[in-house]
Design a protein around this nucleic acid. Structure first.
Length: 819
RNA sequence: GCCGAGGUGGCGGAAUGGCAGACGCGUCGGUCUCAAAAACCGAUGAGGGCAACCUCGUGCGGGUUCGACUCCCGCUCUCGGCACCA
């Protein structure tokens, strides 16, 4: 019995661990600070180590890895680091549930996550790994808090804050979604008056807004979301004197000073400090009752736009500074204490909210802006558009835009008001009543007040014992750094978004023990060339990081004022209609994937599954299609003799054609990787493999042209399928541990001459409908093309023997004959 | 309510003013096999025709253009963001 010649088969499980080991030994992804090559900083958002890494989460890490690998081959010195957003509540929840220390749980998850990333062939410079919960990192988070404090950007204030009753901590505005906690969509936040630490991000509102214009490589959507979040409004502040209270006035903000003559009443927020003063004795009980009720109402109820507006009259009156008119002062909770000055002038004719309110309480509605093209005395709704000013004394007849300026100027001259810009953005509340976070490094002393820790005494270490810091006497009993008397340490920790607002800088000098980062190195690597992560951070993390970068720029520690040049938000991977997660039971773990089909197939499938920015549905059958593709590539590259010359209708093997296809693929795949269009890049690689197989089936010679095609295919495949391509490279005799890695080989150059099409398909249309397709040389003149078209039987038939009255010729593409 | 993105075969998707459906999945037919699976080869938008071919077709209705998935206007549905910010 004769045995067939033994064929090598593609068995990913045999080759993947081998190359992973070699890459690590060779330090393939180590970034050198001193390289003469141009730098490329390729960053993925560092994750929370939840211990729940599925191939779904890994999708964006694969994207980052593909780019990093190609950029290296293209001759860049690539910084591709990884780290862990390791402080945060889940660790405390796990600690309470399982009685393990948050740190123990976190570090175990990190070890697990790291192993899972490595088994997918994702390479990072692990020497630069940062872990935000370790003292060598949070020491510098504390340091940066002090920097902000020194610069007047960190302050402590009593304020009504959002309290999550489940997490038992306060939340930043950005963490409250529709009045509910961002981590618990079922839990309404409560308002509490607490003294808390804030970062003064509002000082940077204007710059955060303006510099969005520089970020032209960010998704339009994210820029828009930040623009709306910052919420800039131009208008005027105007003081309305309170009738009968000499020297007392109510300051309002309006974006429509042109409607000042239409103000028929004023509204104060229930929390407004002047409420008590302006209220008359006759109205006092009702007003007090209303204010008490409003304070108790939940945020959700208060902010609901559906709810009918309500309020009470104070009995007091204010004077319109423009016309001296006496108008009543009301209290209503549709006016928010947290925006503007907590008081408004109500112009019901030209504001929908004021209109509703006026209707309900029969307050006068006076039209002062007439819509262009006719007086709109229809009072069924407020007219909020521009128009011509009426009932406005000396300003009558002006268009509202001019009136805006004139009135503001008039107010400024009289000292009654001034042009103002307001933002919706609020200061960033960073205090958290939690154990597992970076301690806020300040001490409260009866004598010296708030005393920041001296920087050389950092870090304020978290105590080993897991219990609330406020209950840990050993932690908070301390001495004042200034006077040495007994003092109390701050027991709140920082929002974990503080940790993640600067981690991308730490990667530049992760072991620096003198400062948060080495400015020279940070300036070398920054800005991040490509930043990849989920869109859920469109506001929170990205806004905070931009803020920190600007503060550090102002402090002279950084040369850049925007951290991320190009931002990409990848879509999520779903399975059975839901986002993949281990807890939901629909996750595919890296172990499962690698064991079943191999890391390369999984990587390529995740890139091929759909457009990278879209949510995609994981499908095991689809994954198998990629396995087939890899097996085919393996055969084409290593076993071309095993591919039978087809009997039926083999396409004539054409070397020029093959060379052209290879050259065209180089261009398309390179551009697509660069633009993160991985799905089409894979499609082009498949097309090339199909063309190469057809060439073999046609009996094509395996000569120099073939060899070059094979090597190019393997190289183009490398960033996305690194193990199989590295193995094939070695077996082709091109590389391997001795002769050099494919990962270090140069990227294929685009050969424009080889890619050029000498012939074209001339599409012939008659009246815009395709009637024939002709093969012709490129560069035809219109006359030549027309002659060719008219020679076609089908075209003549479509023209019914007539002559075209008009001809449109698109060079090398199409000719359209209009009868 | 306001702002934004989107709607293409049985499915995921490709094509951004010029050949609609690349690439893949699935399905059907074939080769191999005692058989099945796998693998490989071929077909595959719908309708009509023996066929060459013809007609229709990118959510709906209009428009611009020699020509529209692509641009404009209106509508509709889906998804995302914001939601009393004066």
């Amino acid at each position: 019995m004769e045995s067939k010649p033994r064929r090598s088969t593609y068995i990913p499980q045999e080759i993947e661990p081998k190359w992973q080991k070699i890459w690590v030994e060779r330090g393939v992804m180590k970034a050198s600070d001193k390289s003469p090559k141009p730098k490329y900083y390729d960053l993925v958002m560092y994750p929370y180590p939840s211990g729940d890494l599925t191939v779904g989460h890994a999708r964006n890490y694969v994207m980052g890895d593909v780019l990093a690998r190609m950029k290296r081959m293209q001759g860049f010195e690539v910084l591709h680091p990884f780290g862990w957003d390791a402080f945060g509540l889940p660790a405390e929840n796990a600690a309470m549930k399982r009685n393990v220390h948050p740190q123990e749980w976190t570090l175990a998850n990190i070890a697990k996550g790291k192993r899972e990333l490595q088994m997918l062939g994702i390479l990072y410079d692990w020497d630069r790994e940062v872990t935000s919960c370790m003292p060598d990192y949070y020491r510098w988070t504390e340091w940066l808090f002090l920097l902000l404090y020194e610069r007047g950007l960190a302050y402590r204030a009593m304020a009504p804050v959002n309290w999550c009753p489940v997490d038992k901590t306060v939340l930043a505005n950005e963490q409250v979604i529709n009045g509910r906690c961002w981590r618990h969509p079922d839990v309404e936040v409560e308002k509490r008056d607490l003294e808390q630490w804030f970062f003064k991000i509002t000082d940077y509102a204007e710059r955060l807004l303006n510099d969005l214009q520089l970020l032209d490589k960010w998704p339009h959507k994210v820029r828009l979301m930040q623009t709306n979040w910052i919420g800039r409004s131009e208008g005027a502040e105007v003081d309305f004197p309170v009738d009968g209270h000499e020297g007392e006035s109510i300051r309002i903000f309006t974006t429509r000073p042109d409607t000042l003559f239409g103000a028929t009443f004023m509204v104060l927020a229930p929390e407004h400090p002047l409420v008590e003063k302006v209220t008359t004795d006759a109205n006092r009980d009702r007003v007090r009752e209303y204010v008490a009720k409003a304070r108790k109402a939940s945020e959700i109820d208060r902010l609901s736009t559906e709810r009918e507006k309500n309020g009470v009259a104070t009995g007091g009156f204010a004077i319109n500074p423009l016309n001296g008119e006496r108008i009543p002062i009301w209290v209503a909770d549709y006016v928010l204490m947290t925006y503007g000055s907590g008081a408004i002038m109500a112009v019901p004719a030209h504001d929908e909210r004021d209109f509703d309110f006026a209707r309900k309480y029969n307050l006068p509605i006076r039209e002062v802006i007439a819509p262009a093209g006719g007086a709109g005395d229809d009072l069924s709704e407020a007219y909020v558009g521009p128009g011509v000013m009426v009932n406005s004394g000396q300003f009558d007849g002006l268009d509202s835009k001019t009136g805006f300026d004139r009135i503001v100027t008039w107010l400024e001259e009289k000292g009654l008001g001034k042009r103002t810009v307001k933002y919706r953005l609020r200061d960033w509340l960073i205090s958290r009543q939690r154990y597992w976070g970076a301690p806020i490094p300040v001490v409260y002393c009866d004598v010296d007040g708030i005393v920041p820790m001296p920087k050389d005494q950092l870090p304020v270490l978290l105590p080993k014992e897991y219990k609330p810091l406020a209950d840990n006497h050993e932690f908070w009993r301390t001495t004042c750094p200034k006077c040495g008397r007994e003092a109390r340490r701050e027991t709140d920790t920082m929002d974990t978004f503080v940790d993640s607002s600067w981690y991308f800088l730490r990667y530049a000098s992760p072991h620096d023990d003198k400062e948060p980062f080495d400015s020279e190195l940070a300036n070398h690597w920054m800005p991040v060339d490509q930043y990849t992560g989920g869109v859920e951070h469109a506001i929170l993390h990205l806004l905070y990081s931009r803020f920190f970068t600007k503060v550090l720029f102002d402090a002279g520690m950084l040369d850049v004022s925007e951290p991320f040049i190009r931002l990409f938000n990848q879509g999520m991977v779903k399975r059975f209609g839901q986002v993949m997660s281990k807890t939901k039971g629909n996750g595919v773990s890296p172990d499962e994937l690698v064991e079943k089909e191999g890391a390369d197939a999984g990587r390529i499938y995740e890139m091929f599954i759909g457009p990278p920015e879209e949510d995609v549905e994981w499908d095991d059958a689809g994954l198998h299609g990629v396995v087939r593709f890899l097996q085919r590539v393996w055969r084409i590259v290593l076993e071309p003799q095993s591919i039978q010359v087809a009997g039926a209708s083999p396409a004539a093997p054409d070397q020029t054609l093959l060379r052209r296809k290879v050259a065209q693929t180089v261009k398309k795949v390179t551009e697509d990787y660069d633009d993160l269009r991985f799905n089409t890049a894979v499609a082009y690689l498949m097309e090339l493999a199909n063309a190469m197989q057809a060439y073999l089936q046609g009996g094509g010679a395996r000569d120099a042209v073939w060899d070059s095609a094979v090597r190019t295919l393997v190289k183009l495949l490398n960033p996305i399928g690194p193990h199989i391509s590295e193995e094939m490279w070695e077996r082709l005799g091109e590389g391997g541990p001795e002769r050099g890695l494919l990962a270090d080989a140069p990227w294929p150059e685009f050969d424009a001459a080889a890619a050029a099409e000498p012939q074209m398909t001339l599409v012939v249309q008659v009246a815009g409908k395709v009637r024939d397709r002709l093969t012709a040389a490129t560069g035809l003149s219109e006359e030549q093309a027309l002659a060719l078209a008219l020679a076609s039987e089908k075209v003549r038939a479509a023209l019914n023997g007539g002559r075209p009255s008009k001809v449109i010729y698109v060079q090398d593409k199409l000719i359209n004959l209009v009868p």
